[in-house]
Protein backbone atom coordinates (compact mmCIF):
# COMPACT_ATOMS: atom_id res chain seq x y z
CA UNK A 1 0.00 0.00 0.00
CA UNK A 2 2.79 2.42 0.92
CA UNK A 3 4.77 1.64 -2.21
CA UNK A 4 1.63 2.15 -4.25
CA UNK A 5 1.01 5.47 -2.54
CA UNK A 6 4.57 6.70 -2.96
CA UNK A 7 4.50 6.16 -6.70
CA UNK A 8 0.87 7.16 -7.13
CA UNK A 9 1.10 10.60 -5.58
CA UNK A 10 3.84 12.09 -7.82
CA UNK A 11 2.40 10.18 -10.78
CA UNK A 12 -1.05 11.53 -10.02
CA UNK A 13 0.28 15.07 -9.88
CA UNK A 14 2.13 14.78 -13.22
CA UNK A 15 -0.60 12.90 -15.07
CA UNK A 16 -3.30 15.09 -13.57
CA UNK A 17 -1.46 18.24 -14.58
CA UNK A 18 -0.86 16.99 -18.13
CA UNK A 19 -4.43 15.78 -18.48
CA UNK A 20 -5.64 19.12 -17.19
CA UNK A 21 -3.70 20.86 -19.94
CA UNK A 22 -4.50 18.41 -22.76
CA UNK A 23 -8.18 17.68 -22.30
CA UNK A 24 -11.10 19.83 -23.28
CA UNK A 25 -11.95 21.42 -26.57
CA UNK A 26 -9.70 21.09 -28.49
CA UNK A 27 -7.95 18.00 -27.16
CA UNK A 28 -4.19 18.45 -27.45
CA UNK A 29 -1.49 15.82 -27.24
CA UNK A 30 0.91 16.36 -24.31
CA UNK A 31 3.77 17.61 -26.50
CA UNK A 32 1.53 20.10 -28.27
CA UNK A 33 0.08 21.20 -24.92
CA UNK A 34 3.48 21.91 -23.40
CA UNK A 35 4.62 23.65 -26.57
CA UNK A 36 1.52 25.82 -26.64
CA UNK A 37 1.98 26.68 -22.99
CA UNK A 38 5.53 27.89 -23.56
CA UNK A 39 5.02 29.60 -26.94
CA UNK A 40 3.00 32.84 -26.78
CA UNK A 41 2.51 32.74 -30.56
CA UNK A 42 0.74 29.36 -30.45
CA UNK A 43 -3.00 29.62 -31.15
CA UNK A 44 -3.81 27.50 -28.08
CA UNK A 45 -1.54 29.55 -25.80
CA UNK A 46 -4.24 31.81 -24.38
CA UNK A 47 -6.63 28.92 -23.80
CA UNK A 48 -3.99 27.06 -21.85
CA UNK A 49 -2.58 29.93 -19.86
CA UNK A 50 -5.89 31.58 -19.07
CA UNK A 51 -8.14 28.54 -18.92
CA UNK A 52 -6.61 25.16 -18.24
CA UNK A 53 -3.50 26.13 -16.26
CA UNK A 54 -5.24 28.21 -13.57
CA UNK A 55 -7.85 25.49 -13.16
CA UNK A 56 -5.11 22.92 -12.53
CA UNK A 57 -3.24 25.28 -10.22
CA UNK A 58 -6.42 25.91 -8.28
CA UNK A 59 -7.04 22.17 -7.96
CA UNK A 60 -3.52 21.66 -6.58
CA UNK A 61 -3.79 24.53 -4.10
CA UNK A 62 -7.31 23.71 -2.98
CA UNK A 63 -6.58 20.00 -2.64
CA UNK A 64 -3.47 20.64 -0.55
CA UNK A 65 -5.32 23.12 1.65
CA UNK A 66 -8.23 20.77 2.23
CA UNK A 67 -5.82 18.01 3.21
CA UNK A 68 -4.15 20.28 5.78
CA UNK A 69 -7.51 21.43 7.16
CA UNK A 70 -8.64 17.83 7.58
CA UNK A 71 -5.38 16.81 9.27
CA UNK A 72 -5.54 19.67 11.79
CA UNK A 73 -9.14 18.90 12.69
CA UNK A 74 -8.68 15.15 12.96
CA UNK A 75 -5.67 15.48 15.25
CA UNK A 76 -6.88 18.34 17.39
CA UNK A 77 -10.33 16.80 17.95
CA UNK A 78 -8.89 13.26 18.14
CA UNK A 79 -11.60 12.24 15.71
CA UNK A 80 -10.73 10.29 12.55
CA UNK A 81 -13.83 11.46 10.70
CA UNK A 82 -13.44 15.16 11.48
CA UNK A 83 -13.28 17.47 8.49
CA UNK A 84 -14.23 20.99 7.44
CA UNK A 85 -17.79 19.71 6.87
CA UNK A 86 -17.92 19.52 10.66
CA UNK A 87 -17.25 23.24 11.01
CA UNK A 88 -20.19 24.40 8.93
CA UNK A 89 -17.62 26.23 6.83
CA UNK A 90 -18.60 24.75 3.48
CA UNK A 91 -22.29 25.20 4.15
CA UNK A 92 -21.69 28.76 5.34
CA UNK A 93 -20.17 29.58 1.96
CA UNK A 94 -23.05 27.77 0.27
CA UNK A 95 -25.67 29.85 2.09
CA UNK A 96 -24.13 33.11 0.86
CA UNK A 97 -23.66 31.86 -2.69
CA UNK A 98 -27.20 30.53 -2.78
CA UNK A 99 -28.55 33.84 -1.50
CA UNK A 100 -26.59 35.81 -4.07
CA UNK A 101 -27.61 33.62 -7.00
CA UNK A 102 -31.24 33.01 -6.10
CA UNK A 103 -32.15 36.39 -4.66
CA UNK A 104 -30.29 38.16 -7.46
CA UNK A 105 -28.24 40.26 -5.07
CA UNK A 106 -26.10 42.87 -6.80
CA UNK A 107 -22.75 41.29 -5.98
CA UNK A 108 -20.17 41.56 -8.79
CA UNK A 109 -18.83 38.17 -9.92
CA UNK A 110 -15.32 39.23 -8.87
CA UNK A 111 -16.52 39.77 -5.33
CA UNK A 112 -18.56 36.58 -5.09
CA UNK A 113 -15.65 34.52 -3.68
CA UNK A 114 -15.15 37.13 -0.98
CA UNK A 115 -18.85 37.14 -0.09
CA UNK A 116 -18.77 33.34 0.12
CA UNK A 117 -15.59 33.53 2.19
CA UNK A 118 -17.34 35.84 4.63
CA UNK A 119 -20.23 33.38 4.94
CA UNK A 120 -17.83 30.51 5.51
CA UNK A 121 -15.86 32.41 8.14
CA UNK A 122 -19.02 33.44 9.99
CA UNK A 123 -20.14 29.80 10.20
CA UNK A 124 -16.66 28.75 11.32
CA UNK A 125 -16.58 31.56 13.89
CA UNK A 126 -19.87 30.36 15.37
CA UNK A 127 -18.31 26.97 16.03
CA UNK A 128 -15.10 28.48 17.40
CA UNK A 129 -17.00 30.81 19.74
CA UNK A 130 -18.99 27.95 21.24
CA UNK A 131 -15.70 26.10 21.80
CA UNK A 132 -14.88 28.53 24.58
CA UNK A 133 -17.68 26.95 26.61
CA UNK A 134 -16.60 23.37 26.37
CA UNK A 135 -13.41 21.44 27.00
CA UNK A 136 -14.48 18.30 25.23
CA UNK A 137 -13.40 17.74 21.62
CA UNK A 138 -16.50 15.62 21.09
CA UNK A 139 -18.68 18.61 21.91
CA UNK A 140 -16.88 20.67 19.29
CA UNK A 141 -17.62 18.02 16.67
CA UNK A 142 -21.28 17.96 17.74
CA UNK A 143 -21.60 21.74 17.65
CA UNK A 144 -19.97 21.80 14.21
CA UNK A 145 -22.39 19.18 12.94
CA UNK A 146 -25.29 21.25 14.28
CA UNK A 147 -24.10 24.49 12.63
CA UNK A 148 -23.50 22.57 9.43
CA UNK A 149 -27.01 21.11 9.49
CA UNK A 150 -28.51 24.53 10.18
CA UNK A 151 -26.67 26.04 7.18
CA UNK A 152 -27.76 23.10 5.02
CA UNK A 153 -31.36 23.83 5.97
CA UNK A 154 -30.89 27.50 5.07
CA UNK A 155 -29.51 26.55 1.65
CA UNK A 156 -32.54 24.38 0.93
CA UNK A 157 -34.84 27.16 2.06
CA UNK A 158 -33.12 29.68 -0.22
CA UNK A 159 -33.08 27.28 -3.15
CA UNK A 160 -36.80 26.79 -2.69
CA UNK A 161 -37.26 30.46 -3.56
CA UNK A 162 -35.29 30.14 -6.79
CA UNK A 163 -36.28 29.68 -10.42
CA UNK A 164 -35.28 26.57 -12.36
CA UNK A 165 -32.45 28.46 -14.09
CA UNK A 166 -30.60 29.55 -11.00
CA UNK A 167 -31.28 26.26 -9.26
CA UNK A 168 -29.22 24.55 -11.98
CA UNK A 169 -26.39 27.03 -11.41
CA UNK A 170 -26.57 26.42 -7.70
CA UNK A 171 -26.78 22.68 -8.07
CA UNK A 172 -23.40 22.69 -9.78
CA UNK A 173 -21.93 24.96 -7.13
CA UNK A 174 -23.32 22.96 -4.21
CA UNK A 175 -21.56 19.83 -5.39
CA UNK A 176 -18.28 21.67 -5.77
CA UNK A 177 -16.83 22.57 -9.12
CA UNK A 178 -13.59 23.76 -10.64
CA UNK A 179 -15.12 24.49 -14.05
CA UNK A 180 -14.35 27.87 -15.61
CA UNK A 181 -12.12 28.97 -12.77
CA UNK A 182 -9.41 31.44 -13.77
CA UNK A 183 -6.51 33.36 -12.31
CA UNK A 184 -8.90 35.76 -10.54
CA UNK A 185 -10.10 32.83 -8.47
CA UNK A 186 -6.55 31.70 -7.79
CA UNK A 187 -5.59 35.21 -6.74
CA UNK A 188 -8.62 35.47 -4.48
CA UNK A 189 -7.68 32.41 -2.43
CA UNK A 190 -3.88 32.34 -2.68
CA UNK A 191 -3.16 34.72 0.25
CA UNK A 192 -5.57 32.84 2.52
CA UNK A 193 -4.09 29.49 1.62
CA UNK A 194 -0.56 30.76 2.13
CA UNK A 195 -1.30 32.22 5.56
CA UNK A 196 -3.21 29.07 6.52
CA UNK A 197 -0.41 26.73 5.47
CA UNK A 198 2.25 28.70 7.35
CA UNK A 199 0.08 28.81 10.46
CA UNK A 200 -0.56 25.08 10.20
CA UNK A 201 3.18 24.40 10.02
CA UNK A 202 3.77 26.52 13.12
CA UNK A 203 0.99 24.78 15.04
CA UNK A 204 1.82 21.22 14.03
CA UNK A 205 4.17 20.41 16.90
CA UNK A 206 1.63 21.51 19.50
CA UNK A 207 -1.24 19.77 17.75
CA UNK A 208 0.81 16.58 17.87
CA UNK A 209 0.92 16.63 21.68
CA UNK A 210 -2.88 16.98 21.77
CA UNK A 211 -3.22 13.58 20.12
CA UNK A 212 -1.97 12.07 23.42
CA UNK A 213 -4.84 13.54 25.41
CA UNK A 214 -5.49 16.95 26.93
CA UNK A 215 -3.87 16.24 30.30
CA UNK A 216 -0.69 14.83 28.78
CA UNK A 217 -0.43 17.85 26.45
CA UNK A 218 -0.99 20.23 29.37
CA UNK A 219 1.69 18.38 31.33
CA UNK A 220 4.10 18.95 28.45
CA UNK A 221 3.47 22.67 28.71
CA UNK A 222 1.05 23.09 25.81
CA UNK A 223 -1.85 25.55 26.15
CA UNK A 224 -4.51 23.00 25.26
CA UNK A 225 -7.59 25.14 24.67
CA UNK A 226 -5.68 27.88 22.86
CA UNK A 227 -4.02 25.35 20.55
CA UNK A 228 -7.33 23.67 19.79
CA UNK A 229 -9.07 26.97 19.01
CA UNK A 230 -6.17 28.17 16.83
CA UNK A 231 -6.09 24.91 14.88
CA UNK A 232 -9.83 25.06 14.25
CA UNK A 233 -9.51 28.69 13.12
CA UNK A 234 -6.72 27.80 10.69
CA UNK A 235 -8.69 24.84 9.33
CA UNK A 236 -11.75 27.06 8.95
CA UNK A 237 -9.79 29.71 7.04
CA UNK A 238 -8.30 27.12 4.68
CA UNK A 239 -11.62 25.37 4.07
CA UNK A 240 -13.48 28.67 3.76
CA UNK A 241 -11.07 29.96 1.12
CA UNK A 242 -11.50 26.76 -0.89
CA UNK A 243 -15.28 26.67 -0.47
CA UNK A 244 -15.56 30.29 -1.57
CA UNK A 245 -14.28 29.54 -5.08
CA UNK A 246 -14.83 25.80 -5.57
CA UNK A 247 -17.91 25.18 -3.48
CA UNK A 248 -18.01 22.44 -0.89
CA UNK A 249 -15.62 19.86 -2.35
CA UNK A 250 -16.44 16.65 -0.55
CA UNK A 251 -14.12 14.02 0.88
CA UNK A 252 -10.63 15.37 0.10
CA UNK A 253 -10.17 16.75 3.63
CA UNK A 254 -11.38 13.51 5.19
CA UNK A 255 -9.41 11.18 2.95
CA UNK A 256 -6.09 12.95 2.31
CA UNK A 257 -4.83 12.79 5.93
CA UNK A 258 -5.53 9.05 6.16
CA UNK A 259 -3.64 8.39 2.93
CA UNK A 260 -0.84 10.74 3.98
CA UNK A 261 -0.39 8.91 7.32
CA UNK A 262 0.16 5.70 5.43
CA UNK A 263 2.48 7.40 2.98
CA UNK A 264 4.58 8.97 5.73
CA UNK A 265 4.42 5.75 7.81
CA UNK A 266 3.64 7.78 10.91
CA UNK A 267 0.80 9.55 12.66
CA UNK A 268 3.05 12.36 13.95
CA UNK A 269 1.25 15.53 12.87
CA UNK A 270 4.24 17.51 11.67
CA UNK A 271 5.50 14.67 9.47
CA UNK A 272 2.06 13.88 8.08
CA UNK A 273 1.62 17.59 7.34
CA UNK A 274 4.45 17.42 4.81
CA UNK A 275 2.82 14.48 3.05
CA UNK A 276 -0.77 15.64 3.17
CA UNK A 277 -0.23 18.62 0.84
CA UNK A 278 0.84 16.61 -2.23
CA UNK A 279 -1.67 13.86 -1.41
CA UNK A 280 -4.58 16.31 -1.23
CA UNK A 281 -3.36 18.12 -4.33
CA UNK A 282 -3.05 14.92 -6.38
CA UNK A 283 -6.43 13.73 -5.14
CA UNK A 284 -8.34 16.84 -6.17
CA UNK A 285 -6.40 17.30 -9.44
CA UNK A 286 -7.15 13.71 -10.50
CA UNK A 287 -10.75 13.92 -9.33
CA UNK A 288 -11.13 17.02 -11.49
CA UNK A 289 -9.89 15.11 -14.54
CA UNK A 290 -12.34 12.32 -13.77
CA UNK A 291 -15.05 14.97 -13.46
CA UNK A 292 -14.21 16.29 -16.91
CA UNK A 293 -13.89 12.88 -18.56
CA UNK A 294 -16.45 10.53 -17.11
CA UNK A 295 -19.35 11.65 -19.30
CA UNK A 296 -17.31 13.79 -21.72
CA UNK A 297 -18.03 16.35 -23.11
CA UNK A 298 -20.40 17.08 -20.22
CA UNK A 299 -18.64 17.75 -16.91
CA UNK A 300 -19.87 16.32 -13.64
CA UNK A 301 -19.24 18.46 -10.55
CA UNK A 302 -15.87 17.66 -9.01
CA UNK A 303 -17.59 16.99 -5.69
CA UNK A 304 -19.18 13.94 -7.28
CA UNK A 305 -15.84 12.81 -8.66
CA UNK A 306 -14.02 13.18 -5.34
CA UNK A 307 -16.63 10.92 -3.79
CA UNK A 308 -16.40 8.40 -6.64
CA UNK A 309 -12.60 8.32 -6.35
CA UNK A 310 -12.45 8.82 -2.61
CA UNK A 311 -14.79 6.16 -1.26
CA UNK A 312 -12.93 3.18 -2.77
CA UNK A 313 -9.58 4.77 -1.86
CA UNK A 314 -10.66 5.22 1.76
CA UNK A 315 -11.97 1.68 2.03
CA UNK A 316 -8.70 0.35 0.61
CA UNK A 317 -6.60 2.53 2.90
CA UNK A 318 -8.49 1.42 5.99
CA UNK A 319 -8.38 -2.25 5.03
CA UNK A 320 -4.59 -2.27 4.72
CA UNK A 321 -3.74 -0.86 8.10
CA UNK A 322 0.01 -0.33 7.79
Amino acid sequence: MIVILKTTVPLGLVVGLLAGLCLGRPVLDPVAAVRALLDPADPAHVLLVEGRLPRAVLAVGAGGALGVAGLLLQDVLRNPIAGPELLGVSSGAAVVTAAVVVLGLAVPVVLLPYAALAGALVAGALVVLTMGRTRSPDHVALIGAAVSAACGGLVVAVVGLGTQGNVVVLFRYLLGSLAARGWTHVEAVAPWLLVGLVAAALLARRVETLTLGDEVAAGLGVAVTRTRVLAVVVAAVLAAAVASVCGPVAFVALLAPHLARRLARTVATRRVLVAVVPVGAALLLCADQVARLVIYPVEVPVGVATTLVGVPALVLALRSRA
Binding site: R78, T211, E215, V216, V222, A322
Partner: peptide
Protein backbone atom coordinates in the same frame (compact mmCIF):
# COMPACT_ATOMS: atom_id res chain seq x y z
CA UNK B 1 6.99 16.05 34.51
CA UNK B 2 3.58 14.50 34.98
CA UNK B 3 2.01 11.22 33.96
CA UNK B 4 -1.80 11.49 34.00
CA UNK B 5 -4.11 8.49 33.86
CA UNK B 6 -6.00 9.93 30.90
CA UNK B 7 -3.24 9.44 28.31
CA UNK B 8 -4.71 8.55 24.92
CA UNK B 9 -2.98 6.10 22.58
CA UNK B 10 -3.05 7.64 19.09
CA UNK B 11 -3.99 4.90 16.60
CA UNK B 12 -0.85 3.81 14.78
CA UNK B 13 1.73 5.73 16.81
CA UNK B 14 4.93 3.86 17.67
CA UNK B 15 6.50 3.72 21.12
CA UNK B 16 9.35 5.93 19.93
CA UNK B 17 6.95 8.55 18.58
CA UNK B 18 5.09 8.73 21.86
CA UNK B 19 8.26 8.89 23.95
CA UNK B 20 9.54 11.62 21.64
CA UNK B 21 6.63 13.84 22.69
CA UNK B 22 8.34 14.11 26.06
CA UNK B 23 11.01 16.20 24.35
CA UNK B 24 8.53 18.94 23.53
CA UNK B 25 9.27 21.23 26.49
Amino acid sequence: GVLPQTAVVPAGATVREVVEQGRYP
